[in-house]
């Protein structure tokens, strides 16, 4: 079943949309969730949350790319699961990719008036301007939450090279946002 048909099922409030979406993209969503949560049970919970979020948001949304849309919902769901998990513990769990994003975000000293969508557009423009493999490594790390080790395996690079590449890309993003989005870093 293609994306358009599945989105149609969501729009018609047909509950088979959930099963179809899970069959089509369940493994993909679990992959993203596992990268962040590293726990099968939590990843399953995240998958259900993502599908429920899709049910609640389609309609009114009509995603052109269902896979990426569901992936985005899985990321959000995984962050929420992680937050709930950390709330129960005294010390927050450390996840490398999130720490790096937190570091970048906290380096921003002056907030811009830009909204989320505009910020996303700027980040897309910046990532699009990168060459390969920087672009792919950035997306693998901060969209899929892949570990440094996984990225090294995928690209055949050493750890230091990947870390250095990511640091340069984050620095580049900060400079880009400063220039294009009036953020201050």
């Amino acid at each position: 079943m293609n994306d358009e048909t599945i989105v149609g099922l969501f729009w018609n409030r047909d509950e088979s949309a959930l099963a179809e979406a899970q069959e089509q993209y369940g493994a993909y969503l679990l992959y993203i969730a596992r990268n962040l949560l590293r726990d099968e049970h939590d990843a399953e919970e995240c998958l259900n949350d993502a599908l429920l979020a899709a049910w609640d948001s389609i309609p009114p949304n009509r995603p052109e790319n269902l896979k990426t849309y569901l992936g985005m919902l899985a990321r959000d769901a995984a962050i929420n699961v992680l937050r709930r998990r950390n709330a129960k513990k005294r010390k927050a769990e450390s996840v490398g990719s999130l720490e790096e994003l937190t570091e970048l975000a906290s380096a921003c000293t002056v907030e811009s008036a830009l909204g989320e969508r505009e910020l996303a557009r700027l980040i897309s423009a910046y990532v699009r301007s990168l060459g390969e493999p920087e672009r792919g490594v950035f997306v693998r790390r901060y969209w899929y939450y892949d570990s440094i080790e996984s990225i090294c395996d995928m690209y055949g690079f050493g750890k230091s090279k990947v870390k250095m590449m990511l640091k340069r890309t984050r620095d580049g993003l900060a400079a880009f946002l400063k220039e294009e989005g009036n953020y201050e870093f």
Binding site: M72, A105, A120, R135, G136, V139
Partner: peptide
């Protein structure tokens, strides 16, 4: 900028970039 906003914005990257990666 908060981590949530940055992470959310990265989550909204263009689909073609995600698929290419």
């Amino acid at each position: 900028m908060s981590f949530e906003i940055l992470n959310k914005a990265i989550g909204m990257l263009d689909a073609d970039i995600i698929e290419a990666a």
